[in-house]
């Protein structure tokens, strides 16, 4: 089967952390990356992110598909950013170093390139950590640790089940789409946009229907085995917070604080090399 974006069991420092640690770390990391346009911070986050990905023992092959997908999206995003604001960079940095003109209002400036580079770095610094969170966190253990930090176990379990069913749904989607293509439903770019939209309904309809059926079975199975009986429940995969968890959280918090301080110390979210 095609590579899927789901938990892969492995032994590593990252895998050993509890789900809640990874979740909180991911949140702090994302905030740190979101608030800043400071190139130095973004570069640092990017390098640390790659390093963490490396020590998690996840393989490039396992995320290739997801990465390609994200790069394509990012590419479109970049094009959009340029089309709708070719002078955005000039506005932000206050100088204008024009390289060449494409056509009409569309000139390429050093400032715009630098702005877009920063924009790209925001994505690139979050992606490794997001992948880590999805692929190195056991969904059930995540649910148990959410429960421990006060989230209802019903919600935690719903999240875990959703994560667990991603591969199943991907597989069903694959099979249904192939079977529908055999009936002449074309999803390639040859068809008009409107036809394509209509055709994708031909895949979604059966996909939703068979998923609903699956939900009925699983909810019956859960009820028959006492899910929802008590206000609390225990977890066989539960893990205690260890030294490493506190260290990881402290590390995340420090990064966030540094990011905030550096970003806002000079009253500007942007690092300006042009002045």
């Amino acid at each position: 089967m095609a590579e899927t974006l789901a938990y892969i069991q492995r032994k590593s420092l990252i895998h050993d952390l509890t789900g809640a640690t990874k979740f909180l770390f991911f949140i702090m990391w994302s905030i740190a990356a979101m608030i800043t346009y400071d190139t130095r911070i973004l570069l640092a986050l990017f390098v640390i992110g790659i390093f963490l990905f490396y020590i998690s023992k996840l393989k490039w092959k396992e995320v290739r598909f997801a990465l390609i997908f994200m790069f394509v999206l990012m590419g479109f995003n970049m094009i959009g950013v340029y089309i709708f604001g070719p002078e955005q960079g000039v506005e932000i940095y206050g100088t204008r170093h024009e390289l060449f003109v494409i056509a009409g209002p569309y000139a390429v400036t050093l400032e715009q390139l630098f702005y877009m580079f920063n924009f790209l770095m925001k994505y690139l610094s979050v992606i490794p950590i997001a992948l880590l969170f999805i692929m190195a966190t056991n969904p059930s253990e995540f649910a148990s640790s959410l429960n421990k930090i006060g989230v209802s176990y019903r919600i935690g379990y719903a999240v875990a089940l959703a994560l667990r069913y991603i591969p199943d749904i991907q597989r069903d989607y694959h099979n249904i789409s192939k079977a529908q293509q055999a009936r002449g439903i074309d999803l390639s770019r040859k068809d008009k946009f409107f036809d394509r939209l209509k055709n994708s309904a031909a895949i979604l309809f059966p996909l939703v229907l068979s998923s609903l059926q699956g939900i009925e079975v699983i909810s019956n199975a859960m009820e028959l085995r006492g899910f929802g009986k008590n206000k609390k429940r225990t977890w066989i995969v539960e893990r205690k917070f260890k030294k490493e968890d506190y260290r990881a959280l402290a590390f995340g918090a420090i990064l966030l604080v540094i990011s905030i301080i550096v970003t806002f110390s000079d009253g500007n979210r942007f690092y300006n090399p042009f002045l």
């Binding site: 938990y7 056991n138 059930s140 199975a221 085995r225 006492g226 008590n230 429940r233 225990t234 066989i236």
Partner: peptide
């Protein structure tokens, strides 16, 4: 229901705390 065999066998015990 569970992610693994272990969890699935334990599921009803988990619910019974």
């Amino acid at each position: 229901i569970g992610m693994t065999v272990l969890e699935d066998i334990a599921f009803s015990m988990e619910n019974n705390c």
